[in-house]
Computed example of a mutant assay.
Amino acid sequence: MTSHPDLTSGPVLTRREGDILFVTLNRPDQLNAMDNALVETLRQLFLDLYWRRDVRVVVLTGAGRAFCAGLDLKSFNAGGSNGSTADGLDGQRRIADIVIAMRRCPQPIIALVNGPASGGGFAVVLASDVRLATPTAKMNAAFIRIGLSACDIGVSYFLPRMVGSSVAAEYMLTGRFFTPERAAQLGLVSAVLDPSDLEARGRALAEEMLHASPLGLRLTKDALNHSIDAGGLEAVIAMEDRNQVLTARDVHFAEGVRAFLEKRKPDYS
């Protein structure tokens, strides 16, 4: 098995605790804004997760008082006046690859939104599977406030599906911030928590997900992804039928049943 040492320095930190990988954006003095190094590290991390079996759940947060302030405009040219159109498109796609890789990786991603999440940071929050927030976790599609379109890095895909087209249009056309209370009301975040409780709640949620079998957890995320855009009920049920047959024949199914009947945590080792 390929070794995956934790990242203990640099723009992204990782810490593996059993089957859970804790990922921290680590530019606190810049509110974890995305420079080239952060983009490339985060992009590669999520690309690699597709092949990893030693990680079953990811918990993602930001260091310091912010989740991610978006693109670091002082250090990253994403296609403005300083480069060719082709270079700009390459840079844009490297950032967009992060959210595509987040949705493609089979591990559920729990975002602990510990502070502001704007622009690209907002996109990363939306690309996560579950979002827990603190009272300082305001979020917005900041792109439109600096002369760009608000439709960037998957925001125009995720947000209408989560909050409806009217609310999405309201916030994207203005760049207005979602307050934590409004985000919770709309179901954009699952809970608003005291900062001191955020990591513990994220860890507890991750541990609860680990009661699922490895294959069952992966196929559930996969089916949820595809069901959003499925052609209809029958297409979704066909996918669900396939997943149930696959998991019922998996080596871990019997242990899942035993653990349920014995009222204990399953051991899938």
Rank of each mutant, 00 (worst) to 15 (best):
G79R: 13
P180Q: 04
G232E: 03
A248V: 00
N77S: 14
M139C: 08
G256H: 09
L210S: 08
N77Y: 10
M239Y: 02
A248Y: 02
D29Y: 03
F143S: 15
D229I: 09
M172Y: 06
L73E: 06
L224W: 06
N26K: 09
I100H: 15
A137C: 03
A69W: 12
Y157G: 03
H252S: 13
H226R: 15
S269T: 12
A168K: 12
M172E: 10
S81Y: 09
N140F: 00
T136Q: 10
L132W: 09
G202L: 11
G202W: 09
A141T: 07
D194V: 00
G154Y: 11
M172W: 07
D229T: 14
V55C: 06
D48R: 09
D97V: 01
S9P: 02
T247E: 07
M139W: 02
K221E: 04
R52M: 10
N140E: 06
A37S: 12
S165M: 06
G64C: 06
F76A: 02
I153G: 00
R27S: 13
Q44R: 15
L47K: 14
D19L: 10
P266W: 03
M209R: 11
F67T: 00
D35M: 02
S156C: 15
L233Y: 15
S213T: 15
R242C: 01
Y50I: 10
R161F: 01
M172D: 05
M172F: 09
A206R: 12
Q185C: 00
S213C: 04
H226S: 07
A150R: 06
L89S: 07
R27T: 08
L173F: 07
N82V: 09
C105R: 02
R182W: 02
V130T: 15
A33W: 04
L31C: 06
A150F: 11
L126H: 05
T85N: 05
L159Y: 05
G62M: 05
P180K: 08
L186F: 01
I95C: 13
G147P: 11
E240Y: 09
A206Y: 08
R56L: 04
G79I: 12
N114S: 04
H226W: 12
L217N: 09
